[in-house]
Design a protein around this nucleic acid. Structure first.
Length: 571
DNA sequence: GCCGTTTTCGGCCCGACTGTTTTCAGTCG
């Protein structure tokens, strides 16, 4: 049983305990343990064998025994008893905004219902409004939110949130009196998917800002409207929360609403230990506000260097900041070029020349072209003859000095046996080769790992493309042991891709962090299928930054000369 | 249920908004 599964069970126990009405701190203890286990570097089986589980933070005697039972027997009696005692529909009800554990339990107990469908029916029958603590307003809201749940997913792609946030910000920044404004929350931290959009604004007069925000054309429903805080749901289904504060409070509010929650809790704990109190309005010593004009100043007061939003997850960034050992994170400007791009030779929309012009306009010194290989017939993969023709066209374009150098590459399918899709003499003619899995996902983890490792071992492979094959909000990645893959990449000097397509973001940020710690080079690529796709690089940069990646670890932060020198050295 | 440079017991982040109340519990972030 892997760590992820153990973490999932612990987190579900936390939810079940809440629904049971247990001590909320007990529930949180399970949640903390789940988080710790999920982020654990060490091998769980090994810790268990050596009896060192108690050394792990947030794992005490009680939870250690639960984990032991779960891992050794594959079952956990305590968990199964809880599940029997609490109807699964009650857990589902927690997905309804505005319905938490207390009220979900109250509804189920009082009305004798146990599923979402029954709840919806009870609302239609007007039975909820008669319950103590509920009223017609609650009933209407619950009905509306059930309909919303059916219609929309709970989370949205970062790219979608980004576009929506930009429209809202463009509208409210025109409101009179605005001093500073920023997007906060998971969008600012560059999470790969977001639940909602948080915006923080400073102004001496909140009223006009709230007015513009709530009356903004994209708004479908106003969920809450107060003097300092309002929430709306946009037509696209995303919720936006706006907070308006006095400008002296802006950095504190921004810090607070950027989160993550875990990072905030850790920061507050740190403040408490220093005899200070931190909240969204300020940093206080007793009743005295310690003025801080910027987020940087707040961190400084807490004895820390400014922590970039992408790192704020309480996964070691506070300790690193204290020691002055924060990574120097990669930025968009560090990239000298991009490798993974498609043209209309395979399934791209634009010509090679159009793609090259767009990449040049985006400031890159080189652009790799990597159309699909012959096996990928569905995507117009190139035959050997087409490869030769395409390379001639690229040579011709380079001779015209477009202001950008085009690299002759390919995105070669990794065949079921782990070999690449062309004979060696064809592979040798490319400037670079991206090896990717595009089919045959349904094999065991061991088989997939062997298959990918074999492709990495191929002397012509430069980059391992979208290494897990996941599609965000659509498809889980195939089973693969990423640590073994990283080891192989390090050994054979292959870069692992951070595919920046907002539907992929593959590898993910946890895996980036592993690459960073293992010392594996990454390559951040747009996987562009049209000129517009080149701009997707920003999302890959966000993922890489969340994984602590520095420019020196990024293949395409190298100049063309450095790349060529590296290639020569490998041959 | 976890944790400890005040603590092995008594804390565990904390404030805004809503809907229901008539002073507050629940939910959310």
């Amino acid at each position: 049983m892997d760590k992820k599964e153990v973490a999932r069970v612990l987190a579900e126990i936390a939810t079940l305990l809440e629904l049971k009405g247990e001590n909320p701190f007990k529930s949180r203890a399970y949640l903390n343990a789940a988080r710790t286990i999920e982020a654990l570097d060490a091998d769980l089986d090994e810790l268990l064998r050596e009896g060192r589980l108690l050394e792990v933070e947030n794992i005490g005697q009680g939870i250690a025994e639960r984990i032991n039972e779960l891992v050794t027997s594959g079952r956990l009696g305590y968990y199964e008893d809880l599940k029997t005692a609490i109807p699964s529909g009650m857990v589902e009800m927690l997905r309804i905004p505005g319905l938490g554990p207390k009220r979900a339990k109250a509804v189920c107990d009082a009305l004798g219902i146990g599923t979402l469908g029954e709840l919806e029916y009870a609302c239609h029958e007007n039975r909820l409004a008669e319950l103590k603590g509920f009223g017609t307003k609650s009933q209407e809201n619950i009905l509306k939110n059930i309909a919303f749940l059916k219609q929309f997913r709970e989370r949205h792609l970062l790219s979608e949130g980004q576009v929506q946030a930009e429209t809202v910000v463009a509208a409210i920044r025109r409101a009179p009196g605005i001093v500073r404004w920023s997007v906060a929350g998971s969008l600012r931290r560059r999470r790969e998917t977001i639940k909602d959009i948080d915006i923080v604004v400073s102004s001496p007069d909140p009223e006009p800002v709230m007015f513009v925000f709530c009356e903004h054309v994209g708004v479908e429903t106003v969920i809450a409207r107060g003097p300092t805080k309002s929430s709306v749901r946009l037509r696209g289904g995303i919720q936006v929360d706006l907070r308006v504060v006095d400008d002296s409070q802006f950095p504190f509010a921004l810090l607070y609403f950027t989160g993550s929650k875990e990072h905030n809790i850790a920061l507050r704990g740190r403040a408490l230990k220093m005899g200070l109190k931190l909240n969204e309005y300020g940093l206080f010593e007793g009743d005295t506000l310690l003025p801080c004009p910027t987020e940087e100043a707040i961190y400084e007061r807490l004895g820390l260097a400014l922590i970039p939003p992408e790192l704020r997850e309480d996964t070691g960034e506070i300790e690193a900041s204290e020691r002055g050992e924060l990574p120097h994170l990669v930025e968009e400007g560090d990239l000298q070029g991009i490798f993974h791009n498609h043209s209309n030779w395979s399934d791209g929309k634009n010509s090679i020349e159009q793609m090259a012009h767009a990449a040049q306009a985006a400031g890159y010194a080189y652009m790799g072209l990597s159309d699909h290989s012959q096996t990928a017939a569905y995507a117009g993969g190139l035959t050997i003859e087409e490869v030769r023709q395409q390379q001639e066209e690229i040579d011709g374009l380079n001779a015209r000095r477009l202001g950008i150098h085009i690299l002759r590459g390919i995105e070669s399918d990794i065949l079921p046996d782990g070999s690449l899709d062309y004979p060696d003499d064809v592979l040798a003619a490319f400037d670079f080769v991206i090896a990717s899995v595009h089919s045959g996902f349904l094999i065991s983890e061991a088989e997939m790992t062997r298959r990918i490792v074999k492709a990495v071992e191929n002397p012509y492979t430069t980059i391992l493309g979208h290494p897990t094959g996941r599609l965000l909000l659509a498809r889980d990645g195939y089973a693969v042991d990423i640590d073994q893959v990283l080891e192989a990449c390090i050994q054979h000097e292959v870069a692992i891709e951070v595919n920046a397509n907002p539907h992929r973001l593959d590898i993910n940020w946890h895996q980036c962090r592993r690459a960073h710690e293992a010392g594996c080079r990454v390559s951040i690529n747009p996987d562009a299928h049209a000129v517009q796709g080149i701009a997707d690089v920003v999302f890959g940069i966000g993922t890489a930054r969340r994984g602590w990646i520095e420019p020196r670890e990024v293949l395409n932060a190298l100049s063309l000369d450095e790349l060529e020198a590296k290639r020569q050295a490998r041959l």
